[in-house]
Design a binder for these strands. Sequence first.
DNA 1: CGTGTGCTTGATTACTCTCAACATCGGTGG
DNA 2: CCACCGATGTTGAGAGTAATCAAGCACACG
Lengths: 228, 228
Amino acid sequence: MKLDCDNCPVRDSAACASLSDVERAELGRLGTHKSFARGETVFHAGDDNDICATLNSGLLKISSSDAEGKERILSLVHPAGFVGEMFAPVAHHDVVALADSRLCVFSRSEYEAAVDRFPSLARALLRRSSEELFEARNRIALDTQKGAAEKLANLLVGLAKAASNSPCHAAHEFELPMTRGEIAGLLGLTIETVSRQFGKMEKEGLITRTSTRGIRVTDAARLTALAG
Amino acid sequence: MKLDCDNCPVRDSAACASLSDVERAELGRLGTHKSFARGETVFHAGDDNDICATLNSGLLKISSSDAEGKERILSLVHPAGFVGEMFAPVAHHDVVALADSRLCVFSRSEYEAAVDRFPSLARALLRRSSEELFEARNRIALDTQKGAAEKLANLLVGLAKAASNSPCHAAHEFELPMTRGEIAGLLGLTIETVSRQFGKMEKEGLITRTSTRGIRVTDAARLTALAG
DNA sequence: CGTGTGCTTGATTACTCTCAACATCGGTGG
DNA sequence: CCACCGATGTTGAGAGTAATCAAGCACACG
């Protein structure tokens, strides 16, 4: 399906926001919209790495699986995020839709050519990449300096922020966009530990579970403090 | 001290290798060489983020410290590596020399201008950033899917590779460029656990300790297998 | 020498994983 | 409509790994 940049929900926040109208129109001619239902795979680790995409709406996960098949989620991709490895011949990780999602998809070679043609796009991608690197390193720091409770608190704070429309305010109440297993894979814990931590948080009055996936934050201050 | 790109040891592998001779000469005029002794800080988290640098020789660590002062090493920077955050007003992490090191240092604003002027430099940095991101994510995967022995084995294999001059062959014998405490901070373990894992590895015949810091790999195959 | 830093080793504790049983929800088909 | 089923989530008991606490060792340096 043809791109419609004028009505794009991430028009001002995605990498292509750095382009002029003329440039964006040219880039727009190279891409197509594509939808993925929750659970569908955008691409697999090991696939020929021939697409790049910007997330329009929805939520993606980037994950890897070890030999025993245990999954570790390396990153969540929110709208305006970019997926695809520009410099690798094959994809290193799996990319799967966590929620019904809509993407602008480009062939990697064409996108690469566009990066060379539009320096501001290269700059925007560099910025994005730096931020992702910062995120990844924060996660590393979190992984071992903190225990299960801190990790989960940190995730909830992040999801609460993502759930609200305004970037500065966190949502008071929201739905978890993933299963316990996915949360466990994201935090490097087991399903059971995640479940127990939810129980403990509720008992301690930090949150209320409005349903298995529904979270109401009842003590944002303490939750944030716990998250570090 | 004035740059001497012609005799630069990382002339062909650093980000500036993407530049033409003319361009490199122009960039070279903006930077200076600077040396740091082991333990010296290149910049601190929270500093005004006004320098960028390419590592010429030596070894750096990028680390963060949590509230209780425990350090986590987020990344090692080998020669040809780039340090400095182009898009953050203040530095997020500490950068410290692990070995006596020599850097090409640029003011951030001048380097940023150079990135805009030389598209191939932007591309090279984007590539570097993507690779660092990949490294960081690999570390995330390692962090929880594997135990202490696997993590240490993985580090040793990496250091053995870095210690040899040729990029494909690993050194048979080498010196650890860091203390047990730094290894612990890098792997997210404690000093004691690291020490015990060294002992176990030696007892099992994977390595021999030629000194407290000296490592001889006696069973590279099993060590690599353990590293995953 | 004595001191300090880095390293090792041992005993104990704490946290998370593993294994296992059970509960809940949604959908399907009799 | 209800019974069944699979997937998901909760809860409990026990095992295992690494952290913590606590000495002691080794080497370098004044």
